[in-house]
Design a binder for these strands. Structure first.
Lengths: 394, 394
DNA sequence: TCCAGTTCGTTTATCTATTCAACCAAGCTG
DNA sequence: CAGCTTGGTTGAATAGATAAACGAACTGGA
């Protein structure tokens, strides 16, 4: 229950509103904040004072006079606090140090050699070492590193920090969050990689309050942002689009069912389509598989182009399904396969146009930033630690 | 922007919290409210006073003493206000008068004869007459009838009150809300029938904060409740599950695409499956089509049973897709086809079990109440007019 | 029957945070 | 430089929540 409001929570909320306003519209004067938020200018002054004490807001100079005293311009001091974000993939781990605006201040990628004995111990050691590096790289700041966010390629329950399953890593039922919390003095958060990507997409496009981030690679997952908040579902596993049926009675999937989307639109599917088109250069989904296919297509290899077109068509079917059901402001396309966007995007857009109901036809499909998963992981840690300035709407 | 909080909004919110508490836990004493909400008992007393002035809360007697003064028990006065809800279907219109708890106090169903000349004028006249009847049937109450909610079978934008399209009625692009607002002195709200069903399902199961209501009949639509709020999407057309592809390169749909879910799991599909199983008694989707098939199945007609099983299987595929992607607390099954639940439900459950990823396998599939759409329409009108007690969490 | 102890609910004083109005600061315009 | 305008601060007024004291009503034991 709770949800009661007393004077101090009222102030907290208003302070968050002011901070949000500064963040969104900086540089901005106190008067403008008062106008946009509806708060009295006296209140704004007092809240800004507090925020300046906490060094989240700084005065950066004067604006132009409109016939009277010049306004003092305020800005969000993004370097007042940092968080660390890790993107754990099967082949490598990317670690970023982001400031409170989600700007990357330090980044590092190391390969992942899963050859070891105990996968879990290996993962823990790797994550611990990388996060420690990032924390050490943080410049001096008033609040330091607030937390660590970790994106994992599998089913993860954010709320309890449990891994349901990491396919391709052979990990099942693991309380990774507790294991990591012991190793750091700052809070640790774990989430699905697609959720992290979705969060990054939202933070970079704050007006896009409803969006879906598709992570297409070895599998297909999605992160869903609704009303400016990550929607994780009742058990934290929303967004498992990979195993939705798009071809009833279709090809058998590793999950035991038939006709799953990721059986038709993931990396391994591309391998099939290549074979169907007479391209036999690729035997396996190796490290730079997608990039190599794109390079071949660029050189005019017709089979590669055709395979990519087929893949795009099936990817588009699933995306149209998403547009029809969730009617988001935009769909972001990420994951390893997004490196082939040049060939895939036209197919995706045409599927969206053909397959979706009229009002959602123009749903934009946008290419996600390649390091957005790690940035999003850091962003989730930020949102969870820094007071919920995101609780407050635009 | 806005979202600022001052003393009076604080009080409003706390008042809503108290009302919510009374509604959820009645009969309840002031002390218990203070304990569950965290508010001070003096504050609770004062807020309860106000709510009693407004007659939303009444004292109903005394509770048992715990060794001291007996607590005064409070209850929500559900009959303090009413709303009207209409479920407009192709064959008939159901009108309900509901109190502030969503309890039906008056209901009436009239057939819809679409034979007339101007469909829109006809609809307006019918809706106006029925709603007026319902309002006249309202018993005397302190707040009277607060608003009217109308569930329409098609694509509707709740926010601007526009109809995108009512298939089977031949209506396109119609500002029905404005037309109706002129005719009443209370606010009118229009929404998709599935959204109304979803809202009713939520109000009857307030702990089920994330749910999907499937309306399967001539077409298939869904209403989505996320975090205790209806999710309508960016353009108000979320939930168009009927035209999601479940059989890529499958049978052609009326929408122009191939393999849409509602091509495999709506009423007309049942007709096909009947024919495939040698049942030729049914030529068309007439009034009581589904009921008749069920009756025949009950009498042991094997072809009818088989057809229903096949239908259930395809319905289940789509439901599993929903469970995988939205991971709701429950899926509610409504619409005309739900009359065949006896034959469909086992298939649905088995599909859910087979087709969905592990953590969502036990997602319950519940049969929706048959008059839930009209009740939900009234409920939406209530939520929009009565102060947003639903803004407040449990 | 009376009194101590307990619980429920109200009343009064205090505190916190917002707002309003007055005021100072610093610019522009003529 | 005077008059006006805008930006920002200060102090009184106000609204609402809380804490503590108090009254009401009940239980149980002597």
């Amino acid at each position: 229950m709770a949800q009661r409001i007393d004077a101090s929570t009222m102030r907290q909320l208003n302070k968050a509103t002011v901070l949000h306003c500064v963040r969104a519209r900086s540089p901005i004067s106190r008067i403008e904040i008062a106008e946009t938020t509806g708060l009295n200018k006296a209140t704004v002054s007092s809240l800004v004072d507090e925020l300046m004490d906490e060094q989240f807001v700084v005065e950066v100079g004067y604006g132009h006079s409109k016939g009277g005293r010049k306004p003092i311009l305020l800005e969000f001091n993004a370097d007042a606090a940092f968080t660390v974000g890790l993107d754990v993939q099967i082949t490598h781990v990317t670690t970023t140090l982001c400031n409170a605006n989600g700007t990357v201040r330090w980044a590092h990628t190391v390969p992942m050699d899963m050859g070891g004995t105990d996968v879990q111990e290996h993962l823990l050691a790797l994550i611990t070492a990388q996060a420690a590096n990032a924390m050490a790289a943080a410049p001096p700041s008033p609040h330091g590193v607030l937390g660590i966010g970790i994106a994992l390629p599998g089913m993860v329950n954010f709320h309890n920090g449990h891994v349901y399953m990491l396919p391709n890593m052979g990990v099942v039922d693991w309380d990774i969050r507790s294991a990591l919390m012991e190793r750091f003095r700052v809070p640790v958060f774990v989430d699905n990689d697609a959720n992290c990507g979705a969060w990054a997409a939202y933070r970079m496009n704050p007006t896009t309050k409803n969006l879906v981030y598709i992570s297409a690679g070895i599998g297909i997952g999605a992160g869903i942002v609704i009303g400016g908040q990550l929607y994780r579902g009742s058990r934290g596993v929303a967004g498992e689009y990979g195993h939705t049926t798009i071809v009833a009675m279709g090809v058998r999937c590793t999950c035991g069912n038939y006709g799953c989307w990721e059986r038709y639109a993931a990396e391994e599917s591309l391998l099939c389509y290549l074979a169907e088109n007479g391209v036999t250069d690729f035997q396996d989904v190796e490290e730079d598989f997608v990039e190599k296919v794109v390079r071949a297509a660029n050189k005019g290899n017709h089979g590669c182009v055709q395979a990519l077109v087929t893949l795009g068509r099936f990817l588009g079917i699933g995306m149209a399904n998403i547009a029809n059901t969730l009617n988001p402001d935009a769909v972001f396309f990420g994951g390893h396969l997004s490196h082939a966007y040049k060939y895939l995007l036209p197919q995706l857009k045409s599927s969206m146009d053909l397959k979706s109901v009229q009002p959602v036809r123009e749903t934009p499909i946008l290419l996600a930033n390649s390091d957005s998963v790690a940035i999003g992981a850091a962003g989730i840690a930020l949102a969870e630690t820094l007071y919920q300035s995101d609780f407050v709407e635009n």
